[in-house]
């Protein structure tokens, strides 16, 4: 069995994954995304930076912190029929909040009301449609960066003027989400395949609860309701190894976002679940399936 771990650099998560592979007698080739060169008009017999043909890999585990590099690498590898975790389809959907919302809508998953507009006037109407306060998010991005809670029309106008004047084109798609009143916390769940293996509460006095922004974690029991919701949502975006952000809204649980290269350094200790081990075991279970089952219909 030959595996590759595709990374930007080694964070605590990648170190845990390397240890989990090692515990199973596997030493994956570590490939840096900065070293990638793909001949897009040739096939998988070309050599990876590790010195072996890409076709030699039974599975490539994508853990790039660089979203663009990870997505394009998955596109290439899946187009060559190489098994990956996650797939291009899953990654490209989760990396884009607008596409995630569409996928969840198609699957009937409860989520905050969300709208989109592409010019200042129409974006103001999109924001008004979700009502104030609203949350404006870049369609791509992570770690709670550039989120804006706008409490009224004037605040929305100010944010949009800045986005359209100072932002590049990626800031000109205005994605507005209903602000959800939550009990000082949200829930981060970890889905492996069709199962929610664990979850944490992320408590914060700030309305942004990301641990990257100072949120603290504690164990959250995985109820049948939470498991069923998260498994359905994960499958809606293509499935795999995913971390979901769930709000306890006054109307029940709603799925806020889904992350496809999740961080979990703060979550194994409070839950007592070896998340890295579960992730590696999932990747190994894929080996019993034809690669086509993982890569087909992904592009």
């Amino acid at each position: 069995m030959r595996a590759a771990l595709l990374i930007t650099h080694v964070r605590p998560e990648e170190k845990l994954l390397l240890a989990a592979f090692g515990a199973r007698g596997i030493t994956p080739d570590v490939i840096l995304d900065r070293d990638l060169v793909f001949d897009l008009t040739a096939g998988p017999e070309q050599y990876a930076p590790s010195g072996v043909p890409w076709s030699a890999y039974d599975v490539v585990f994508e853990r790039c912190v660089s979203t663009s590099r990870g997505i394009y690498a998955l596109a290439v590898l899946n187009s060559w029929g190489i098994r990956t975790v996650n797939t291009y389809r899953t990654a490209v959907t989760c990396a884009d909040k607008l596409l995630t919302t569409l996928a969840l809508t198609r699957a009937g998953i409860p989520q905050p009301h969300a709208t989109a507009g592409f010019a200042e006037d129409s974006a103001m109407r999109a924001i008004a449609a979700v009502g104030y306060p609203a949350v404006l998010k870049p369609v791509t991005g992570s770690w709670g960066r550039l989120l804006a809670r706008v409490n009224d029309h004037d605040a929305a106008e100010a944010v949009l003027e800045h986005r359209f004047t100072l932002g590049d084109w990626t800031q000109h798609t205005i994605y507005a989400q209903q602000f959800v009143e939550k009990p000082g916390r949200d829930i981060r769940t970890f889905v492996v395949g069709n199962r929610t293996i664990c979850a944490v509460y992320r408590d914060s006095a700030h309305w942004i609860t990301n641990t990257a922004r100072g949120g603290t974690t504690s164990n959250c029991p995985v109820t049948d309701e939470l498991d069923e919701l998260c498994a359905r949502a994960a499958n809606a975006v293509g499935g795999g190894l995913l971390a979901l952000d769930v709000f306890e809204s006054p109307d029940g649980l709603v799925v806020n976002e889904i992350n496809h290269t999740m961080e979990f350094r703060n979550s194994s200790a409070p839950t007592g679940v070896d998340i890295a081990a579960a992730m590696v075991d999932y990747a190994l279970t894929l080996l019993s399936q034809p690669a086509a089952a993982n890569t087909e219909a992904t592009l």
């Binding site: 912190v65 979203t67 991005g141 992570s142 770690w143 971390a243 992350n259 290269t261 961080e263």
Partner: peptide, 10 residues
């Protein structure tokens, strides 16, 4: 370490 880029995240 490389500077954090706009598309970095999880």
């Amino acid at each position: 370490a490389p500077d954090v880029e706009e598309d970095w995240g999880e």
